Each structure stands twice: as C-alpha cells, then as structure tokens.
Amino acid sequence: MADKANRTRRWVLLGGGAAIVAGFAVREYRLIPQDYAGDRLSVQDAYQQAVSGDVLLVDIRTPREWKTTGVGQGAHPLDMRRDDFEQALAQLTGGDRNAPVALICARGVRSARLSNRLTEAGFTNIIDVPEGMLGSAAGPGWVRAGLPVEHNTGETG
C-alpha cells in the first residue's frame, strides 16, 4: 500500500513540475520579442521624431494600459487587438504604406511581433521601439526615461 502511495505522490510531483515548466515556457515566449530586422528607435528618438512629425508613433497597447500609464506625448493610441487595425493604421498614414510608422507597446514584445506582421502586410517603413513604455533589455522605457505622457481615459483606439 505504501508503494502505491509513493507512486501516486511521484506522479503528482512530476505533473506539478511539468505544469510549472510549461508555465515558464509560456511566460518566456510572451516576454521574449521576435527578431525584427527593420529599424529601431530609442524612446528618446521616438519622442523627438513623433513631436517633430518625422514619424507616426503608434501606441499599440490596450485602453486599460493607456489609462494606467498615459500615452507618450506625440503618440497615437491604436489598440492592436482591433479587427480593423491595419485599415485604421492605413487611415492614420493617409493611405501611405511607405510612411514611417514607429510602434510602441509596454516592453517591446508586441511591437516586434506586430512590426513583422505589418511588414509582411505591405507596410514598408515600420520601426520598432523595443524599450516600450515600461522598459526592457533594450533600455529603461518611456516612463522611466521621464518622457512626457498625456492622460488617456482608455476610450480611444
């Protein structure tokens, strides 16, 4: 009887360990950005180019995230989960798929993935801001860099 209990305990421990490993794998996948071969900007350069009109800076996070941290000054909030995201982006660029568009998210993961997707969809001048709003391995991020943000109620995009 003790042998059966030990086997059961072992299977429970193995199952729990496998669940933990799977959880870490999913977490790492979500936190490690895809490689993006296109251009990149630091948050400082993204801010300067956005306010000067040299680049269209698009904050692709969710309305809840915009409400929490604000949106970087000069950025246009556009929730990447929108079904019509590509059409809305094309509208922001005036239909110019060659216009310089910089994407920023929280930590550079979603912006890298979306940069790849938009490039495949025919946008030719997509630029990633890998630091994001909250920082990443690429740098401290918009908020910690002390760049200006505008309050957003989370109702646009």
Rank of each mutant, 00 (worst) to 15 (best):
R27M: 15
W66I: 05
H76F: 09
V26E: 13
V51I: 15
L57P: 05
A75E: 06
A75K: 10
G70Y: 05
I32H: 06
T62N: 09
V51K: 00
G38F: 03
D39H: 00
V71I: 15
A50C: 04
G74A: 05
D54A: 11
R81I: 06
Q49A: 02
D54P: 02
M80C: 04
R81F: 13
L56A: 10
V58K: 03
E65I: 09
D35R: 11
A46M: 08
Y29K: 13
M80W: 13
L57E: 05
T68D: 12
A46I: 07
R30E: 14
W66Q: 11
L31C: 04
K67C: 07
L56Q: 07
H76I: 14
G70I: 07
H76C: 00
Y36H: 02
T62L: 08
A75S: 14
R30I: 05
R27V: 13
V43S: 11
S52H: 13
Y47W: 15
G53A: 13
Q34V: 12
R64H: 10
P33L: 08
P63I: 01
V26C: 08
Q73L: 10
Q48Y: 04
G74W: 04
R30A: 12
D79H: 12
V26D: 14
W66F: 15
R61G: 07
S42C: 09
W66G: 06
K67Q: 15
G53V: 07
V26N: 09
D79Q: 09
Y36N: 08
A37Q: 07
L31Y: 06
D79G: 04
A50N: 07
R61S: 03
D35W: 06
Q44C: 01
R40I: 06
H76V: 15
V58N: 08
E65L: 03
S42L: 12
Q34P: 04
T68K: 14
R64L: 11
G72I: 02
S52P: 08
S42N: 03
R64V: 12
Y36D: 10
Y36K: 10
Y47P: 02
A46D: 05
G38R: 07
D45P: 03
Q48R: 14
D79F: 12
D35G: 11
Q34Y: 12
W66P: 00
L78N: 07
S42I: 02
D35N: 12
Q49I: 10
Y29C: 05
D45Q: 14
P77Q: 03
Y29I: 09
A75C: 03
D79N: 15
A46Y: 05
Q34D: 15
L57I: 12
P77I: 02
E65S: 06
R40Q: 08
E65R: 10
S52G: 08
G53M: 05
E65C: 07
T68W: 05
Y36R: 07
S52C: 02
M80T: 03
Y47H: 15
D39T: 04
D35E: 14
P77N: 01
Q49D: 01
Q34H: 11
Q48L: 14
G38K: 04
L57A: 04
Q34M: 06
G38Q: 00
R30G: 12
V55C: 01
R61A: 05
Y47C: 00
T69I: 04
Q48V: 00
W66K: 05
A25E: 09
A50Y: 05
L41R: 01
V26L: 13
V55W: 09
G70C: 05
I60L: 12
R40K: 15
A37F: 08
E28Y: 11
Y47E: 10
T68M: 09
R64D: 13
G70R: 10
I32K: 15
Q48I: 00
